[in-house]
């Protein structure tokens, strides 16, 4: 069974929709890349286990 022919409106907007898809995929890539860079270059995550290590505690007088 053949698909019916695309409506003219869809043909007219195909380029625009395709470009928008590329932009959105690019956005996902950028946010993912930012996440990877931030996680790998940031300070080590500490305190996640609720255990205070000595160097995390401010010295008295500071």
């Amino acid at each position: 069974m053949a698909f019916s022919k695309d409506h003219e409106l869809h043909e007219r907007r195909f380029g625009r929709n395709l470009s928008l898809a590329v932009v959105l995929i690019g956005l996902v890539g950028i946010v993912f890349g930012l996440t990877v860079v931030k996680v790998t270059t940031g300070q080590p995550l500490e305190g996640f286990d609720h255990v205070a290590r000595p160097h995390m505690i401010p010295e008295e007088g500071n």
Binding site: E8, L9, R12, R13, G15, R16, S19, L20
Partner: peptide, 13 residues
Amino acid sequence: SINKPETGDAQFS
């Protein structure tokens, strides 16, 4: 009504 190009039916460019 959706067949004719109208103002606002812009291309990505």
